[in-house]
Design a protein around this nucleic acid. Sequence first.
DNA 1: GCCGATATTTATCATGTGATAAAGAAAGCA
DNA 2: TGCTTTCTTTATCACATGATAAATATCGGC
Lengths: 229, 229
Amino acid sequence: MENPFDDQQDDPSAGQTEKGRRSVRMPPEARKTELLTRAIEFFSEEGFDGGTRALAQRIGITQPLIYRYFPSKEDLINEVYSAVYVSQWKDDWTIRLVDRSLPLQQRLTEFYRDYAHTIFNRTWMRIFFFAGLKGLDINTRYINRVISNLLVPICIEARANFGLPTDTPVTPEELDLVWLMHGAIFYQGIREHVYGLPGQIDHDRSAQVAIKMYLGVAASEITAAIAKT
Amino acid sequence: MENPFDDQQDDPSAGQTEKGRRSVRMPPEARKTELLTRAIEFFSEEGFDGGTRALAQRIGITQPLIYRYFPSKEDLINEVYSAVYVSQWKDDWTIRLVDRSLPLQQRLTEFYRDYAHTIFNRTWMRIFFFAGLKGLDINTRYINRVISNLLVPICIEARANFGLPTDTPVTPEELDLVWLMHGAIFYQGIREHVYGLPGQIDHDRSAQVAIKMYLGVAASEITAAIAKT
DNA sequence: GCCGATATTTATCATGTGATAAAGAAAGCA
DNA sequence: TGCTTTCTTTATCACATGATAAATATCGGC
């Protein structure tokens, strides 16, 4: 250091919290959890090309400390994926979607209320698209799970709802139809959290309308789709 | 060089086309056009963090040559934006949307057919989301143009179509309703080109269904929206 | 209050990045 | 042919990146 009165000037080579203040010593588990939490937040803003130094500075630690808890940046990113994608999935969604003791419209409304509550936030949405653009298979796997655990069941429930036979396999047309509803709802999240449009959206209400739209055309569209096979 | 028999080994510091083969000399205009075209392609795959060396190698030139045609990487990227966003917009879209000599459903169908044809490709979609995630204002400006030149006009046409008064301003609820249709259609492009789902989608047919869904609920929803004000 | 264990930092490396300056090579023209 | 122009490459810089090794500071147990 050239300047001993260096209390405002920033040392450019240093990456610690603030003016070289040492960060508090923490038990490994807590530190790792904090690191992962902040990493999710960080990468969702900066993308996965965000630097480890910037991440460390944001947490208030030095960059090499990251490598005590994660062998490599890639490992850290993988744990981020897992925390966002895997651990937030609820098998309960599928179970309740196919519970015919309730009317379909109510099941869809309640499902999309909960689903939107889980994924309609800046962090989830952005991580999802950063990963999607990278073409990572974790993304593909997630979407396949959406299809098989949510969309296909909805197709079948729709058939049952309109008194149509449920023994033949779901057609691509039926799946595309559910994708339209699903996309309409999902796109509300994109508008708000990826585009960053300020306008406040009433997601619950929008989802309800999208469901109404779907159910409005479903009977005839599904009938036509089945007939075509 | 340590090895004079170096015809297979790659010089790690070199970034030219293939084993030092000099690229053909080109007139500046043609070279700049080629560079921009390949840059669009390149950045749409790699994101804007893609390196200039990788780009140069892909084109078959050396990295510094880029800087003869673009002052900086940022300038190059800005020209990419402009080529993708600005120059592909058609004012004709708005004009034909509000041409009441044709039925609304037909206008919407024809518009979305053309719109999808323009933006439903890997390059456009990916550049759009890369830019969107960066929070660039060019993206915000594009979306504002979508709202004011496409969605708001559609709202007004919908009112006229159902014999509702068109003198009061479009309500947020009406706009959200069009966003649902628009999102449902746009999401088909996301499915195909951002998620990279292989399944072939019949975009024209899907758009038609989405339009039908919208028009199916529009009358009652818009009436309710206007009444609430 | 000392001491071993370990959480955290400092210092550093190899590599990759955007960018610049100077050398080289192909074209046009006398 | 020789000369000038300019398109293209080689060489290089300053800086940022992911990662490692060694030094340092803090904690718990005695």
